Simulated assay, not measured.
Amino acid sequence: MTEDDPVDDDPLTDGLLTIGAFAARARLSAKALRLYDRLGLLAPARVDEATGYRYYRADQVERARLVALLRQLDMPLARIAEVLGAEAAGRLAGYWADVESRVAGQRTLAEYLRGRLSGRSSEMYEKFVIETVDVPAQVVITESRHTLADELPTWIGASFGRLEEAAREWAAARGRTWKTTVRAEPAARLAYTRITKAQVANPQILAAFEAVEQWMAGQGLEMAGPCREIYFADWDAAGPTDLVCDVAFPVR
């Protein structure tokens, strides 16, 4: 005898479904139901203390099927617990917006990789205009952190406000602020290309870096320092086609 089809005459189970019968109605496996119980997604209506058998009410079938449908969206079980709570429709909309954003990024990356793997890299680079500029020595305020690539955009955006505040404090001669460093940057010649806000996203920005590198090689220029992204526009106010950033390499 298994938990799926227990045989007992307990009056407390009258009107309840065994886990096997409930699984059949919900179109789920008993194993999945045990997992959902463990995670707090779908608790049985009753668990027999002596045998451990689980029993469910018929009106729990709808929730079970809803969990199964959300799983078909590849939604993590932890996220399903949130969606099944308050403001379920709004939370589902937020999850799906994240999925579409991720898929759009993957689609763009796939197109970029197809270009590279098919030998069309040179065509991809032709859309970038590369120039050089001589930059005088200057004082810069910096903030450093080791971060993963996918965390970088969030950190860069958050650092803008801190660096702007640090610049105001430095200008007012109040010295260094938390986690920032003031240093002198020597004069340099930069090879750069100017890109739009839309091109800042991966992998478009990778193509911009590679385009500058390829141009440098063709011009016989050597890299004289770490590459950089130089933002010169109001990011929040800029539209997708507005120029916002220089992808640059110090050269000699």
Rank of each mutant, 00 (worst) to 15 (best):
P11T: 11
I19T: 13
D37S: 13
L39M: 15
A43S: 14
V47K: 15
E49D: 15
Y53K: 04
Y56E: 11
Y56I: 10
R57K: 14
A58E: 13
A58Q: 08
D59H: 09
V61N: 02
R63Y: 02
A64L: 10
V67M: 09
R71V: 05
R79N: 07
L84Q: 10
G85L: 11
A88Y: 04
A88W: 07
A89I: 12
R91P: 00
L92D: 01
G94I: 03
D98W: 01
S101Y: 00
R102N: 08
A104W: 01
A110N: 05
L117D: 06
E123D: 15
E123W: 02
K127G: 07
F128L: 03
F128D: 05
V133K: 12
A137H: 05
Q138D: 07
E143H: 13
S144P: 00
H146L: 15
T147Q: 04
T154V: 08
G157R: 12
R162H: 14
L163Y: 10
E165H: 09
R168M: 05
T177M: 10
W178T: 14
W178K: 11
T181R: 13
E185V: 04
R189A: 02
K197H: 06
A198Y: 03
Q199F: 05
Q199T: 09
P203G: 07
A208P: 02
Q214T: 15
A217V: 13
L221E: 04
C227A: 15
D242L: 12
L243V: 06
D246L: 10
V247Y: 04
